[in-house]
């Protein structure tokens, strides 16, 4: 009896601590960041090294970098995940090789991706400090997350589906498009969210690739400062930048929430429409 009570108390306590940390963090950012947040702040360009003015160009740069990263990484990772789960045996040489290299890639610190991106995209390919370099570097970084979650989602679909589809004479590609991908949609979207989260929070990889310029970008080949780099610079390098750092951090969280909810409802519409799975 006593043991039961103790366990219950401990579990509740853990849950309380975890959500407490989250609430503390969020309320700290909201309390410090909300007073400065306004439409003007979102639209204006930074002034005086970011101490005054807004974050308009920085939001645009962040979204552009994210767009490049996701547009590049999503098809690549979907294709790899399909290869791994549908077209190779689990213990085949190629499957093991790809999985092992993805696991290594997932464990690489982001600063290493930054240095790689700087050496390869900026210097070797001649893209310079640009939104394109930053986006492609982030694409490399989120690949493992996207692939592994998509693969797990595909593998979780029951084999019955594949067998039934084959018995009905559906081609493999039709089975994939109409049956397997829609039923794996929740996992695909969850992976996408994780990827977006990791990408939008990235600082180290972007400071060397998409750069530090806080002007409104004209094209993907311009350098553009991401929100996370801006927050880092304001809080760690610019004296008196703390208030705007808080407001930018609040904006980053809001941005993430908006992207997540859009992606979630899109997934519900597009992918779940094709398939009815009420068992």
């Amino acid at each position: 009896m006593f043991k039961n009570v103790l366990t219950t108390v401990l579990i509740w306590l853990t849950a309380l601590i975890v959500s407490g940390v989250f609430v503390w963090l969020l309320s700290d950012i909201v309390i410090h960041g909300l007073p400065r947040l306004s439409w003007a702040f979102l639209a204006e360009a930074p002034k005086n090294a970011g101490r005054s003015g807004g974050i308009g160009p920085i939001i645009i740069s962040t979204l552009s970098i994210l767009l490049v990263a996701m547009v590049t990484a999503t098809p690549l990772s979907l294709a790899t995940a399909v290869l791994l789960s549908e077209f190779t045996e689990n213990d085949s040489v190629i499957g093991r090789l790809v999985r092992r290299s993805l696991d290594v890639l997932a464990g690489v610190p982001s600063i290493v991706f930054g240095l790689f991106g700087n050496a390869f995209f900026c210097i070797y390919l001649g893209l310079g400090f640009s939104i394109l370099s930053g986006g492609l570097t982030l694409a490399c970084m989120v690949l493992p997350i996207l692939i592994r979650t998509a693969e797990e989602g595909l593998q979780a679909t029951p084999d019955d589906y594949r067998l039934a589809a084959a018995a009905l004479g559906m081609s493999r590609s039709a089975t994939l498009v109409h049956l397997l991908l829609p039923s794996a949609a929740p996992a695909l979207i969850a992976g996408l969210m994780l990827g977006v989260g990791r990408a939008v929070a990235e600082t180290a990889a972007l400071i060397f690739t998409s750069g530090y310029v806080d002007r409104m970008p004209d094209s993907l080949l311009d350098s553009g400062r991401a929100l996370s780099v801006h927050i880092y610079d304001l809080s760690m390098n610019v004296a008196g930048g703390d208030t705007n750092a808080y407001s930018s951090a609040l904006m980053l969280i809001l941005l993430l929430l908006i992207i997540n909810s859009i992606a979630m409802s899109l997934a519900k519409q597009w992918l779940h429409r094709d398939i009815v799975l009420y068992e």
Partner: peptide
């Protein structure tokens, strides 16, 4: 230098207002 960068970026912005077809890109490290 990240110490010089904010200053150089601000000088760059003022320089850009005087030279309309110039862009000053400041990077740190």
């Amino acid at each position: 230098s990240s110490t010089v960068a904010p200053l150089a970026a601000e000088i760059g912005k003022r320089f850009e207002t005087l030279h309309s077809n110039v862009r000053v890109d400041v990077q740190t490290g």
